[in-house]
């Protein structure tokens, strides 16, 4: 019986082990990016910018050239790269602490300039790497190590909605929030990432895909329970969908 390989590790990923915790969906998001870059035949012309956060070692995982940024500065670093090498594909991979706290100015202004880069924004409602502290995306009532009784709205306000916020910026060409908590979500997420890179290729402007992601370790859940927790608790606060698509407006 003849058989075809229908799924294998992407050629866009180095043949090294990921350091992520068991079942952490950072790994799924990495593969989707790698698969898209290979499918679009861009991997040899791409420079990725890694964040400070659990994904800091992303520079060891992708087979494309990689640049490690300071905490929150990935959009500025990516801007420098893209302006120096306008023909290359440039992406940033950033967590919610990285992008929505310390790096808020950089992401807003990259979007404002319509910087022709793609940002993969991984929202796991906490600072994974440093041990589960509160992020701007932490849900009201969610227990984190710097709000052990749960995030209080009175004290800290409500979670920031990055996709909604950036969708108000004209320079943004495509903004979508996706999730990788089930198979349908993973397939949708890959489509969104692909669209973002295609639009970057076309020079449409800034593109960002927010990916809801799990942090089983700091959430204190098994990986499968974490997927359920994401579905039940995160999606109601961070609804999935396309928040900005200038190609749709054209129609």
């Amino acid at each position: 019986m003849e058989m075809d390989v229908v799924y294998q590790k992407s050629a866009g990923l180095e043949d090294v082990e990921f350091h992520y915790c068991p079942g952490c969906t950072h790994g799924i998001i990495h593969k989707l990016i790698a698969e898209v870059l290979v499918e679009l035949d861009l991997i040899g012309d791409t420079i990725g910018v890694a964040p400070v956060g659990c994904a800091v070692f992303a520079y060891d995982y992708f087979t494309c050239d990689m640049h490690e940024a300071a905490h929150g500065r990935a959009p500025a670093v990516a801007t420098g790269i893209k302006r120096a090498l306008p023909d290359k594909t440039v992406f940033t991979y950033q967590g919610d602490g990285d992008l929505a706290a310390i790096g808020t100015a950089e992401i807003v202004h990259a979007a404002m300039r319509g910087e022709k880069i793609t940002t993969i924004f991984v929202n796991n409602t906490n600072y994974g790497m440093t041990g589960g502290q509160m992020a701007p995306t932490t849900l009201i009532g969610q227990k984190v190590t710097t709000a052990p009784l749960g995030r209080s709205k009175e004290h800290y306000g409500s979670p920031i909605k990055v996709s909604e916020m950036l969708a108000t910026i004209e320079g943004a060409a495509y903004i979508e929030r996706v999730s990788v908590h089930n198979m349908a979500g993973i397939i949708r997420a890959k489509k969104a990432i692909k669209k973002a890179f295609q639009l970057q290729q076309e020079g449409a402007g800034f593109t960002l895909i927010e990916v809801l992601s799990t942090c089983p370790t700091n959430w204190g859940l098994t990986p499968n329970d974490a997927l359920n927790w994401l579905q039940d608790n995160m999606i109601p606060v961070f609804p999935l969908g396309v928040y900005r698509d200038i190609t749709a407006e054209d129609k």
Partner: peptide, 21 residues
Amino acid sequence: IGCANCGRICPDSIITVWREK
């Protein structure tokens, strides 16, 4: 059945899936 669900979700990309031609 070679649906590749397992391969797609594995965060560590350690599953290879084949399907009958």
